[in-house]
Structures are given as C-alpha cells and as structure tokens.
Design a protein around this nucleic acid. Structure first.
Lengths: 119, 119
DNA sequence: TCGTTATGTAGCGATATAGCAAATCATTTC
DNA sequence: GAAATGATTTGCTATATCGCTACATAACGA
C-alpha cells in the first residue's frame, strides 16, 4: 500500500498545520478578545455596544474584532451604520466552556486542599 | 432569591479569570509548543528525545517545556540524569483534537467549493 | 574530586502585538 | 453635497517573547 488511509488524525503534523492551529489558539490568548467573545456568546452585539461594554476604545475593539474575524471565529453583518457581530464558529463556545470548567475544577481542588491544610 | 444558583457558568468573567484563560490558550498558541505536545500525546519523551525530534535547540525546548509546565499541561519526572515529560492534563488532547478536526472540516469544505468552482 | 552527560537559566537581538491618537472610510440624514 | 455617525485603518510607543549563545546546575561514574 502506497498510502495510509486511516480515519485517525495524522500523528505528525506539518509545519503549516501547526501554524494554523497556533493562530487559532492565539486568537483566544488575549483577555480583551475573550471578553468580546464572552459578550458575543450572550448574543449579537454592535461594535459600539462592545466598545461600551468593555470600556475600551473603538479602534482597539475594532482591531481585535478584525483578528477574530480572520480567525473565522466572529462574523459581521452590516445594518445601516452599525455592524453587528456574532459568533461564527460554535467551536468558540466549546473551547471556552471546556477551558472554564477545567479551571473551575482546579480552583475547587486547590481550595479544598487549602481548606484541609487548615484543618 | 438573593443568589443565583444555576449550573451554567457565570456570564460575566472577571479580569483575573480572563487572564487565566488567556494564559492557558497562549500556551497553545506557538507551533513549537504544539509540536512538543503532539509528540507527548504519542507517549512520554525525555527532553533529549524532544530536542532530537523537533530539531530545535535544547535551551529552546527547555524553555517551552517550562512554560507548558507552568500552564499545568505538561508534567516532568526525573529518572537519573534525564527528565521524562508527559501530558499532565487531558484537556490538552481534547482541545487539540477539537481544533484539528474543526480545521479538517474547513479544509474539506474549502476544497469542495474550489472543486465545484472548477466544474 | 574531576569529568561527562542531561537539563535548566540568563542575557541578547529581532520580531510581534496591545493600546493610544489621528486620519480615513462608509453610510445615513439634513 | 455637507454634516454627522459608526467603524476601520494607520503610525506610534511600550512590552512581550521567540530562538540564539553562553553559562549554571544536577546526577552519575571513574
């Protein structure tokens, strides 16, 4: 057989694949972007609403949204003057919830061991 | 009721929480670290083995491993002179597999639409 | 103890990016 | 068309970090 044809993911990832994956995770690696995503997970928001909710500058929010759009995580739709943003890829919710619940676990474990250490 | 008692995660995340989450995702946002994790997902490796497999410098691998250790994703066990590295948190596998399969989907969709565009 | 081997750490230069301010673009309204 | 509004883009500075080189630490054996 000249070619592997398994359903499993390849064990060795190419440089290009690693770059792609890294870029996606990098989009999630900034607090401000996570805050924006957190807001968008609760429903669509205009850029202006995001600016107000985050307290950041319009330019800054816009730049982060551009990056999130390029990563395919956020979509935008024009409505008159305003542009409405929304989560474009449900993986965002999954990844964030997975990470959050994992961190909650860790925090609880840490709290528990601290508490028992006081006993 | 003075307090919400839902099972759902809190809607508004604190700055500290966002920093924590961002730091975790940032650990996954570099190709070299992803390559190291990819190797470790296939089983334990010594630092030297990781150096050889990646072709990177020993200092560089060590630094990335330190970061991954601080993020709680990689663990280390000393065996004589060598230290053996392993995935310490199964969330690494889940996150990476989720991201990889999502990217595969996208690539396939893109290929399909390109192909139909040629038809 | 000395030397060797396997890792870890420090310092450095180059590059990337967050956030600010100002300029620009696009759309609606007068 | 001009003004106003919402959003994006462009320079800029400060900070972070990648990978390198050189050095330091730790464990083992002669």
């Amino acid at each position: 057989m000249s070619k592997k044809n398994s359903d499993a993911p390849p064990k060795q990832l190419s440089d290009a694949a690693l770059e792609l994956i890294a870029t996606r995770f990098r989009a999630l690696s900034e607090p401000m972007r996570l805050r924006l995503l957190n807001l968008l997970m609760q429903g669509e928001h205009s850029v202006g609403q995001l600016v107000e909710a985050t307290g950041s500058s319009q330019a800054n929010v816009s730049k982060h949204l551009t990056l999130l759009r390029e990563a395919g995580m956020v979509g935008t739709r024009k409505e008159g003057l305003t542009s409405i943003c929304f989560i474009a890829d449900p993986i965002v919710n999954e990844l964030c919830e997975m990470m959050c619940s994992r961190l909650r676990e860790e925090m609880e474990d840490k709290a528990k061991s601290l508490a028992s250490g006081l006993g």
